[in-house]
Design a protein around this nucleic acid. Structure first.
Length: 203
DNA sequence: TACTAGATCGGCT
DNA sequence: GCCGATCTAGTAG
């Protein structure tokens, strides 16, 4: 559909703290190129994982083989395997050595949706019901956009995976809640999503 | 609609 | 061994 003429977010965007970036990422366009196909989706739900005072952040226990990407300078992708089954995709933020990131929890499919269906369901047939289930969860969107451990540490300023700027979502359309699916630091208000967007993982 | 189990990898109490 | 930033299929009500 639409021609994507917007500009990539620059390196400075990602160097702010995770909480700030998590909110600013709402409404931006996540782009992934596989072979000659360009998949695009709007970010509608995020969660921040902080370097300090956040027990559920993977980096809170220090650097390990698995989480080392989180400690790089903001602007790379951190992908990890959860429950031995699914991948989750994060945007690393902050300065080098900090160890914080923004988890992408849900996106709204925009371009080459049939290709996303193939990636996730193994079929091109698009139905309204399945469309809502295509990318409304952190592991689902990784599936649909074909993001795996191979993509860990991908620089978002490159051409493989990147994020395009888009008009900011106004404050009154951003809902803030506690995060989902964690057992530590559960009370921190670090989940953000776009009000009334049908692709959000959970109200 | 609501809860439950199972899949299955890697890092660590 | 154990548990996790998840999802799906199955069962029960």
């Amino acid at each position: 559909m639409s021609n994507i003429s917007a500009k990539k977010l620059n390196a400075n965007f990602y160097k702010k703290d995770a909480k700030y970036v998590a909110k600013k990422l709402l409404g931006k366009i996540l782009v992934r190129t596989v072979a000659d196909k360009l998949l695009a989706a709007k970010i509608v739900e995020t969660e921040a994982y902080l370097a300090h005072g956040d027990e559920s952040c993977h980096a809170s226990k220090g650097l390990t083989q698995r989480n080392k990407t989180m400690f790089f300078t903001g602007g790379v992708l951190y992908v990890y395997l959860i429950y031995g089954v699914h991948y989750c995709c994060n945007i690393v933020t902050g300065k080098e050595g900090e160890g914080e990131a923004v988890l992408l929890r849900a996106v709204e499919p925009i371009e080459n949706i049939d290709e996303m269906f193939v990636n996730r369901f193994g079929e091109k047939e698009i139905t309204d019901k399945k469309l809502l289930l295509l990318t409304n969860g952190p592991a689902k969107l990784c599936d649909a956009l074909s993001i795996t451990k191979e993509d860990d540490n991908t620089n978002l300023l490159g051409n493989n995976i990147y994020i395009l700027d888009a008009p900011a979502i106004s404050e009154d359309k951003i809902i803030t809640t506690t995060r989902i699916g964690i057992t530590k630091s559960v009370d921190l208000p670090l989940r953000f999503y776009i009000k009334n967007n049908p692709f959000v993982s959970k109200k």
